[in-house]
């Protein structure tokens, strides 16, 4: 399962990096004469309603998906770690307030949160990233908080305090390295979820703006013409399936390797 996951992820990442070399066409090039042409040697995945080459759009869509996923998870990690440390190490009152805040963010169903935010700010890539941060961040903050709470009472922290170390130093040197490991595994398993959120919002027309190539947007284009030219939907869905499967298989394997306690195979 792990090997398959790595293969799928490498396939996807390589496609995104070498998108310009691999595709014969520009992803945004409109060519009315080639509208709705079925997959052929010329257009591997066919063309859409504007005659754009779907293979090129799928490869370039991978860049959008990857960059959104990585950058928003990074932002989410930074905020989550900061909030988690403060909640875990700070005063009790602050901790309770933050828990309330995190729980109320989590109490919105994801799609409803996305819909509400889009109503508020209009569709854009930024909103997609805000949604991702809001959805993933509470989980990170909670893990960090719980671990910090446990470590706060440990002997080496008490020792550091008695040696006169300040709070920032304790958090940075003594607590951070101990709490970050499980968090990274969790974050790597969130990558497929985030890619699904971006694609889903773009599918609804609430994510990236056209003509930016995004897998969700391709699905949206294809959905309108699903009866006449089904290959557009197939082209939009396949990369989503490949990527989410790849990252999930990889994440499951990583988790089993690094955290035997969670092994479901027993």
């Amino acid at each position: 399962m792990g090997a398959l996951g790595i293969a799928l992820v490498v396939l996807m990442v390589a496609g995104a990096i070498f998108a310009d070399l691999l595709s014969l066409y520009e992803p945004d090039r409109i060519s009315p004469r080639d509208r709705f042409s079925a997959p052929s040697m010329e257009h591997f995945l066919g063309t859409d309603h504007l005659g754009r080459d779907l293979f090129a759009r799928v490869l370039h869509g991978g860049r959008i998906a990857l960059s959104v996923a990585l950058s928003s998870i990074l932002i989410s990690l930074i905020i989550g770690v900061a909030l988690g440390l403060v909640a875990g190490y700070g005063p009790r009152r602050l901790d309770n307030l933050m828990l309330l805040l995190l729980d109320s963010i989590k109490s919105f169903p994801t799609v409803m949160l996305a819909l509400a935010l889009v109503t508020l700010f209009g569709p854009s890539l930024t909103v997609v990233m805000v949604v991702v941060v809001l959805v993933t961040m509470p989980g990170y903050a909670r893990i960090i908080r719980t671990q910090t709470l446990a470590l706060k009472e440990s002997e080496f922290v008490t020792a550091a305090i008695s040696l006169g170390a300040g709070t920032p130093r304790i958090l940075r040197v003594h607590i951070m390295p101990n709490v970050i490991g499980p968090l990274l595994i969790l974050a790597s398993m969130d990558i497929p979820v985030v890619i699904a959120i971006e694609a889903g919002m773009s599918f609804l027309g609430l994510g990236v703006r056209p003509p930016t190539p995004s897998w969700g947007a391709i699905l949206n284009d294809g959905y309108a013409a699903i009866r006449e030219s089904p290959w557009i939907v197939v082209a939009g869905g396949l990369p989503i399936i490949i990527t989410t499967l790849g990252f999930t298989f990889l994440g499951e394997t990583l988790r089993d390797v690094f955290d035997p306690r969670l092994d479901t195979r027993r």
Partner: peptide, 27 residues
Amino acid sequence: IGIASVAVIAIPSFVIAIYALLVFAVH
């Protein structure tokens, strides 16, 4: 069964919806 369960969890539901629509309703 183990691999299939992970697979159906991973694939986003709207992709499943569109593919189901394509295969069973359209095709």
